[in-house]
């Protein structure tokens, strides 16, 4: 239990840090807000002439946009940069001296900061709900529950991706480049641009074999009751398996990367 407690402390410190740097969070959230608003209006223009696009009604599309905003708000730019920065400014060497597991410590910090992100994100999400005027919502409590579990799994997958991307800073000194490439790939394949079912068939089937769809598309589909019952449980299980896989992959890359430190000299 004691071993666990130190990570709780790390998470707490990270939460306090996040609050101190609240303006940084606000920008990245506001940028996401502007993005979702511009997409909202473009869909609105489209739905003014169509009743449904790819099987999505207007109310469903609005709900999809909302979930997109929420999943994008979690584990934002700040957490991503925090991991890269640790490596780039050499404080990773200091961390190696402490009785901490690097990966668990970063997870604790990321989760700590994401508590604050969730609060800010929820505030902006409620503004979005008001502007959107009527969105589809889960039909029953069970769906809500499944959605929340799926959202948590989404955060774990995203951490796995961010962590691995951050480790690449052992090989390059450009955190922005890495983060941009990471964001481009994740957004494209997670359904953060459009629902994956709107993609051409071949691209959609590619995403089925990758972890990214668990970040946006799966929680959004559960929210919309498009994936339900046993299928939803199955999807969540797959999400968790991906999270585990990414966690282990992160460990492997880390142990390779640590050898790099001796070359850098910390």
């Amino acid at each position: 239990m004691n071993a666990f407690r130190k990570y709780i402390v790390l998470g707490k410190v990270s939460l306090q840090n996040a609050m101190a740097y609240r303006s940084t969070f606000l920008i990245s959230l506001l940028a996401g807000f502007v993005l979702v608003m511009s997409q909202f209006y473009i869909w609105k223009a489209i739905y003014s002439k169509h009743n449904e696009i790819g099987g999505y009604s207007w109310d469903e599309m609005k709900a999809y946009l909302l979930i997109m905003f929420i999943t994008n708000s979690l584990l934002s730019w700040y957490s991503e940069m925090a991991i890269s920065q640790k490596i780039l400014d050499g404080s990773v060497a200091m961390d190696l001296l402490k009785p901490l597991d690097f990966q668990k410590a970063r997870l604790a910090e990321t989760m700590g900061a994401s508590i604050f992100e969730s609060i800010l994100g929820a505030a902006l999400a409620s503004i979005i709900i008001i502007i959107f005027e009527g969105i589809a919502s889960p039909p029953d409590l069970l769906t809500w529950l499944l959605f929340l579990v799926s959202l948590l799994a989404s955060a774990l997958i995203k951490f796995g991706i961010i962590y691995i991307a951050g480790l690449f800073c052992f090989w390059t000194s450009n955190p922005y480049g890495v983060a941009w490439v990471r964001a481009a790939i994740t957004n494209l394949l997670s359904g953060a641009i459009v629902p994956l079912t709107l993609f051409p068939r071949w691209l959609e089937s590619v995403t089925a074999y990758l972890p990214f769809r668990g970040v946006v598309f799966v929680p959004a589909s559960i929210f919309l009751n498009r994936i339900n019952g046993q299928a939803a449980v199955q999807e969540i299980a797959i999400q968790l398996l991906w999270a585990l896989f990414l966690w282990l992959a992160g460990r492997m890359i880390w142990s390779r990367a640590v050898r790099q430190i001796t070359i850098y000299g910390g």
Binding site: I53, S173, V181, A184, I193, V194
Partner: peptide, 30 residues
């Protein structure tokens, strides 16, 4: 810092291709 430079050029180009995908997907339908 040549490698950094290449990464910057490549990554910023990549991220902006996403918007294109968005438009492309939509115009497949409308």
């Amino acid at each position: 810092y040549r490698l950094d430079m290449m990464i910057m050029i490549f990554s910023s180009a990549l991220i902006h291709l996403l918007g294109l995908v968005f438009l492309w997907v939509i115009y497949q339908r409308v």
